[in-house]
C-alpha cells in the first residue's frame, strides 16, 4: 500500500470523527479503486487462443506445408462447396498413415479454400509428447473431449475435425488399407446432435499409401508407452528419414453430403440405437465412397 494513499485515507477517517472529538482506530484502507487496466489485446504478447491455436503459427505452417500439399501430394478436392462457410459443423473422415498425413491435408485444404479455421481433435496421447503436443496445439489441434467439441461447435460455431476410427485407423496394416475400422462408440454423432450441427463426411484416398505400415512391434510400443509402434515402408526405404518422409501418393478428398439429424440440441441423452444407426450409416457412406474412388484410381501416384 503506498504511504500517500494510507495517509489520505487516515486523514479522511479522522475527519469523519472530528465531531465526536474522541479516539478513532483508523482502519487499514482497502485497496484504492482499481486502476484503469488495459484490454487483454494490448497486454498480450502472443496470439494463442484459449484452445492453444495460434493464427501466426498456423500461417507459417500453411506456408511451409503448401508445397507438400499441392506439389507432393497434389491434393484434389471434390465437393468442397458442401462445407459451410459459416456455422459449426463436425467433419469426419477416414484415418490412415502410420503418422497420419490426412489431418494436415484436410485442415490445410479447408483453411486455404474456405478461409476459416479447422480445429482438429486427436487422442490425448499427443498432449503427452513434448514438442509434438505443443506444436499440435498451436496448429489447431486439441484433445478429443466431448466438452471441447461441444463448446467449439455449439457456442463458437467452428469447424471441428474428428477421425472416429482413432488409432484403430492409423495402426492398420497395409493389407487392410481402405477398410474402415469401427467408428468408436458413435460419440461423434451424439456430440453433433447435442451441438445441433451437421456431420460432414469426407473420404480420403492417398493417405494410406503415403506411409503404409508393413509390421508392428507391440513390445516396443508397450515399453515406451505409445499406442502402436509401426515399421513403415518409408522406414525400410529411407531409414530414419522414413519417420517424416511421406511417399508422394496422390491425394483425393471427396466431401460427401452433410448429414443433418433434426433432433433437439442440448439434450442430456439421445437414443443409443439412433446414434449407432447414424454412425453406421455415415461409416457405410464413407466406405462406399472410398471403394468408388479406388475403382476410378488408375495409379497410386498419379491418381
Amino acid at each position: 500500500m503506498p504511504k500517500r494513499v494510507a495517509a489520505i485515507a487516515a486523514a479522511e477517517a479522522i475527519e469523519q470523527v472530528a465531531s465526536s472529538d474522541l479516539v478513532h482506530v483508523p482502519s487499514t484502507p482497502r485497496s484504492p479503486a482499481r486502476p484503469v487496466v488495459e484490454d487483454d489485446a494490448t497486454i498480450r504478447h502472443g496470439d494463442v487462443d484459449e484452445w492453444g491455436r495460434s493464427e501466426n503459427m498456423r500461417r507459417i505452417a500453411r506456408q511451409l506445408y503448401e508445397p507438400i500439399y499441392s506439389k507432393w501430394f497434389r491434393a484434389e478436392w471434390e465437393g468442397l462447396e458442401k462445407i459451410p462457410t459459416d456455422g459449426g459443423a463436425l467433419i469426419v473422415a477416414n484415418h490412415a498413415g502410420a503418422i497420419p498425413s490426412d489431418a494436415p491435408a484436410i485442415m490445410h485444404g479447408i483453411e486455404k479454400e474456405l478461409e476459416r479455421p479447422v480445429y482438429g481433435m486427436a487422442d490425448y496421447f499427443f498432449r503427452k509428447v513434448p514438442v509434438v503436443g505443443t506444436m499440435w496445439s498451436r496448429l489447431g489441434g486439441l484433445p478429443a473431449h466431448p466438452d471441447n467439441a461441444y463448446r467449439l461447435l455449439r457456442e463458437q460455431k467452428q469447424l471441428v475435425l474428428v477421425f472416429p476410427e482413432g488409432t484403430k485407423g492409423t495402426s492398420k496394416h497395409m493389407s487392410e488399407r481402405y477398410q474402415l475400422a469401427r467408428f468408436g462408440r458413435g460419440g461423434f454423432v451424439e456430440i453433433a446432435m447435442r451441438a445441433g450441427v451437421p456431420v460432414i463426411p469426407i473420404a480420403v484416398v492417398g493417405a494410406e499409401e503415403s506411409m503404409p505400415i508393413v509390421a508392428k512391434v507391440p513390445a516396443v510400443a508397450k515399453a515406451i508407452g505409445i499406442p502402436y509402434m509401426p515399421i513403415t515402408a518409408n522406414m525400410l526405404a529411407l531409414g530414419p528419414l522414413g519417420l517424416v518422409g511421406y511417399f508422394p501418393a496422390k491425394f483425393k478428398l471427396r466431401v460427401l453430403d452433410p448429414v443433418y439429424f433434426n433432433v433437439e440440441p442440448d439434450r442430456e441423452r439421445y437414443s443409443k440405437s439412433r446414434i449407432m444407426d447414424e454412425s453406421e450409416r455415415i461409416r457405410d457412406n464413407i466406405q462406399a465412397a472410398l471403394y468408388d474412388m479406388l475403382r476410378e484410381r488408375r495409379s497410386i501416384w498419379f491418381g
Binding site: 484459449e50 484452445w51 492453444g52 490425448y124 496421447f125 498432449r127 503427452k128 486439441l142 484433445p143 473431449h145 466431448p146 466438452d147 471441447n148 463448446r151
Partner: peptide, 12 residues
C-alpha cells in the same frame, strides 16, 4: 492430466 478438457465446468 492429459485427458482433461480445455475447460472444466463445476460438474466435470
Amino acid at each position: 492430466t492429459p485427458e482433461d478438457p480445455t475447460w472444466f465446468t463445476e460438474d466435470t
